[in-house]
Write a protein that binds this DNA or RNA. Structure first.
Length: 792
DNA sequence: AATCAATGTTTTTTT
DNA sequence: AACATTGATT
């Protein structure tokens, strides 16, 4: 009976998961021990992981053939199961209940994802399959999981308490500067960005300042080590953590406090890591510690898509996994469901040139497809115009959706030329990444107020806003205050009480009063209210107007947007305190915010940002030596080149139907024209897969330099942002262009391509204003307001 | 202390 | 070319 039960069980489960291929099913049914899932691009990785977790929650180890006959299973049950199995149907609730065996409680599952967005998506999808209790899982990025752990435990480390704030890279840089100065070095010899780089990579490797000093074999490195030491000391004094420290300190916690480790490792019966190829040493140690309790560790990744080596990711983590865990199960997902075989062949051929990789080869059952298009262009503007023309052809002539198109590039700076071309052709687009909302001055200032309110020890934030808006507290005063604080061993904020110089005392005193007032309000109110109060109390609107009318409006709009963001978190995620809000905002990146899918726009982004995404049509711009592969200096190592090649591989495998490559003979870089050869990666694609277009005409010649040119002011903010433009251009003072919101029905406008027309409809959204225009020559069209010029 | 012109620096990719 | 930082000037 047990044999038949197990057979039926197996059959039924295979039925339930029969939308997965054999390898995917194997991945789903393997939950014990160490497992490596090598998931190639487009191989259905996320679906597999979602089903794997759902399976654990629903059935536990039901698939384990050695399990004994569950209670309550009798001949009737078997008959019922037989009927389902013979009918080829998935088990119903009754059977599901019978074949459950040690179901896994969601709160015993820990899953790391690369982005918050991925975490949210996965959570939702698991809940859809396994039910609402899936919400009890711990799922998030390394940083958010670690912060969660640290909030409860950080006071074990002297100096820290649970109100700690997180420093972003800019804050960290400011802190490094302070340290450099305090040690009597200057910023020319020790560039803050460089020093921060050393500190960051040390932390990726879990190196302390002392470790760093031990290996320092030059005077310069020794000094950097001292800066590192001071930096760490100050972080602690300020009750602050940088991004890397979040991970390092958690590892330290788990290492130095066995009770904490045992508790957490005991809690997490199953540990799952997505994007394992992008983990670093510190994260590796973290994973090991957390999975040490039950030994059920499943890592998912693709060594060919490891593209974060520059930030410390160690590709050897995934390459050596099999060697490190001798008894592990290895499952390869090599069937690709995304791209045509032309695209896959090209990708396979390119990546074959890498030596440091796991053997595998993507394949698809879908044969053929369009060849890869390759264009040679004059310069970056010609290239951009060519891309715009192609997109126009696709979307106007062939009725494809703009949202099916992505333009990828190696570096953000390349987006400018492309934007210009898209605007000129009235193609709607959005940019992912680039200028970030939280990097804007007015936002950073406001957030600094929040930080200092939550954590009075945060001198970096205090220094940022002590004279914002201007209140006559200058550098010398701040220096004095800082010195005094160091002497007395208190925070700068507390040191205010010890200043006795008359004039300064008054100014600082009233600042302190203001601080107290804000603090009282903000600790008793919701974040959105708090932000609103600060804006009003500081009278920011008027302050901004003092500095310039035009900027004032956009700044205020950005601040309003911050209020809505806070309100949204409050409503959606149940955020109630300023502290929680800060955590969200610092750990959330632009790509994390879920897009509304309804906006039909072309997507522009870096290849890094495109990882994990797919588009029907993909354009890759700038396929030139020096640009891509990006050559930083002469002595670029082979491993760096391999990472560039993986990046190229990632770009190719984003495309479902058609891939278009282009390179420019010359390109403006660093303010000068540079000439490059076509990328070596182009040569690595077999010629039979490529259609090299003969250069018919330079797209630039038609319509750019002569006509009016768009003022280069409209950098569209990335979506999450939903934020307004950074600062309004000074140019718009001089020129006559109307503000984006100022069009109304009946206005006469001119378009560089379509000529003169009349506005028939105005559609303003957060991101852009779309005008419906009746053109004299070509009828009604929808045009982004930026692309037209008002007449009269 | 605040403002403005001159100078220097940057552009890889991001949690 | 665009931007941030520095130094000189008020």
């Amino acid at each position: 009976m047990i044999t038949e039960f197990n057979d039926l069980k197996r059959k039924l489960l295979e039925t339930e998961f029969n939308h997965l291929n054999d390898m995917q099913q194997k991945a789903v049914f393997t939950s014990k021990g160490h497992t490596l899932i090598l998931a190639g691009a487009g191989s259905g990785k996320t679906t597999t992981v979602v089903n794997k977790i759902a399976y654990m929650i629903k059935y536990g180890n039901a698939y384990d053939p050695s399990s004994s006959l569950p209670k309550g299973v009798d001949e009737n049950t078997l008959a019922y199961m037989r009927a389902f199995a013979d009918g080829g149907m998935a088990p119903d609730d009754f059977i599901a209940e019978k074949i459950r065996h040690n179901p896994v409680k969601p709160y015993n599952i820990l899953a790391f994802t690369f982005t918050n967005k991925a975490a949210n998506e996965m959570k939702e999808r698991i809940a859809a399959v396994a039910g609402a209790e899936a919400a009890d899982m711990w799922i998030g990025t390394f940083h958010s999981i670690c912060v969660k752990i640290l909030r409860r435990n950080i006071d074990k480390f002297f100096g820290y308490n649970s109100n700690f704030v997180i420093y972003d890279t800019a804050d960290a840089k400011t802190l490094v500067k302070t340290c450099i100065h305090q040690l009597g070095f200057n910023e020319k010899d020790y560039k803050p960005a460089d020093v921060l780089g050393y500190i960051g990579s040390a932390k990726d490797k879990l190196m302390s300042p002392d470790d760093f000093l031990e290996t320092a074999d030059s005077y310069r490195l020794e000094n950097i080590g001292r800066i590192f030491q001071l930096y760490q000391q100050k972080l602690r004094e300020y009750n602050a953590l940088d991004f890397d420290e979040i991970i390092c300190l958690t590892v330290k916690l788990l290492t130095e406090y066995p009770d904490v480790r045992e508790k957490l490792a005991g809690k997490f019966h199953y540990v799952l890591v997505d994007e394992y190829q992008d983990t670093n040493k510190a994260q590796y140690e973290l994973i090991s510690a957390l999975a040490s309790g039950h030994g059920n560790l499943c890592v998912v990744g693709d060594d060919d898509q490891s593209i974060y080596g520059w930030r410390g990711a160690d590709i050897q983590n995934i390459i050596d996994f099999e060697d490190n865990y001798k008894n592990c199960t290895v499952i390869k997902l090599e069937q690709n469901y995304r791209s045509t075989s032309i695209i896959l062949d090209a990708a396979n051929e390119v990546i074959r040139n890498n030596t440091n990789r796991k053997d595998k080869k993507l394949w698809t059952s879908a044969p053929g497809g369009d060849k890869i298009a390759l264009y040679e262009r004059d310069d970056e503007r010609d290239e951009a115009n060519g891309i715009a023309a192609d997109i126009e052809k696709l979307c106007l002539d062939e009725a494809q959706q703009y949202s099916d198109v992505a333009v990828l590039y190696r570096t953000h700076t390349q987006s400018r030329a492309i934007e210009d071309a898209l605007i000129k052709n009235a193609i709607p687009y959005r940019i992912v990444g680039g200028l970030k909302f939280y990097d804007r001055k007015e936002i950073k200032d406001l957030v600094a107020y929040l930080k200092i309110i939550v954590n009075p020890a945060d001198n970096i934030s205090l220094k940022r806003i002590i004279n914002v808006p201007k209140r006559g507290i200058g550098d010398s005063t701040v220096e004095k205050l800082e010195q005094l604080a160091t002497e007395k061993g208190v925070s700068m904020l507390d040191a205010i009480a010890d200043i006795d110089d008359g004039k300064t005392k008054t100014k600082l005193g009233s600042f302190y009063e203001l601080y107290e007032k804000l603090k009282n309000f903000c600790s008793a109110n919701l974040p959105s209210k708090a932000i609103d109060e600060i804006i009003n109390e500081l009278n920011l609107q008027e302050e901004y107007i003092k500095e310039g009318e035009i900027e004032a409006q956009t700044r205020m709009e950005n601040l309003e947007e911050l209020i809505s963001v806070a309100a949204e978190y409050e409503e959606k995620d149940g955020i109630t305190t300023v502290s929680e809000f800060l955590e969200y905002t610092t750990l959330m990146t632009d790509t994390d915010v879920t897009e509304e899918d309804d906006d039909n726009t072309v997507t522009l982004m870096t290849i890094h940002a495109a990882k994990g995404l797919e588009f029907t049509y993909v354009f890759l711009a700038g396929c030139e030596e020096e640009v891509f592969p990006k050559i930083v200096d002469e002595e670029d190592t082979e491993s760096e080149l391999e990472e560039e090649r993986r990046l190229f591989y990632v770009a190719l495998t984003r495309a479902k139907k058609k891939m278009t490559l282009s390179y420019a003979n010359s390109r403006m870089m660093y303010g000068r024209t540079q000439y490059h050869f076509p990328s070596r990666f182009i040569d690595e694609i077999p010629a039979r897969l490529v259609d090299k277009e003969v250069k018919e005409k330079a797209y630039t010649s038609g319509y750019s330099s002569s006509g009016f040119t768009m003022p280069d002011i409209y950098s569209k903010p990335s979506k999450p942002a939903q934020f307004k433009y950074n600062t309004m251009p000074k140019q718009s003072l001089k020129t006559d262009y109307k503000d984006k919101t100022s069009y109304s029905v009946g206005d006469k406008v001119s378009h560089v391509k379509f000529g003169v027309g009349t506005v028939a409809e105005v559609n303003a959204s957060d991101a852009m204003t779309v005008l419906t225009i009746d053109f004299e020559t070509c009828g009604r069209k929808n045009i982004v307001s930026k692309a037209v010029k008002p007449l009269e």
